[in-house]
Amino acid sequence: MEKFTALTAIAAPLLRINVDTDAIIPSREMKKVSKVGLKDGLFAGWRYRDPVARTEDPDFVLNRAPYRDARILLTGLNFGCGSSREHAVWALHEWGVRCIVAPSFGAIFYGNCVRNGILPVVLDAARIEALAAQVEADPSRPVTVDLVTCTLTAPDGTATGFEVPPADREMLLEGLDPIGVTLKRAADIDAFQAADRDRRPWIYLQPGTPAA
């Protein structure tokens, strides 16, 4: 898994609340059984005046310089709510986003970010609005996010601490393979399953179709 330690980059303000994963990557943009080839579909309903002809809407934030190079997204409450489609995170990642700052996240989306090397940072809405105001005043001045120290530094140099649950922080910092980590506990899982089979035998189906 991709690591995240620290990042200094352009931040793009998209201060909308309840941005859902259908908006991040519309269903029609998920054309293949694949994690790649999604970046052109990112925010397709907002980025393009005509999503089929791909005519860009010059007013949409990610179409404007220097936000085209943004690696950090500043956004509103409940970002990534809705569908569990991990394609939303894959599309953001492929486009270049590595850190998303919001007052809260859709729960599944948050987990998907961590598993794909994107750092979700929770800050209160007022703090994000102040940050966005600074960025808008001079979009070329970068924001720094440091996961080692858990601080976010605004363009004017003021630093704010943030919290990331320890397990998520470790996974991002170390770039761990979560399945590999869990499989180290295979003996625990085997033991649990053996005891559980006695406790709840009805859970354990036999291979093949049961009679109706």
Binding site: E86, G111, N112, R115, N116, I179, L183, Q193
Partner: peptide, 22 residues
């Protein structure tokens, strides 16, 4: 509860998930 595809792989391979209690 709903999960992403990568967590789905974890559940399929290990019969478990690492979950933070809500």
């Amino acid at each position: 509860w709903g999960i992403g595809s990568t967590e789905g792989e974890h559940a399929l391979a290990t019969k478990t998930l690492v979950v933070r209690k809500p």
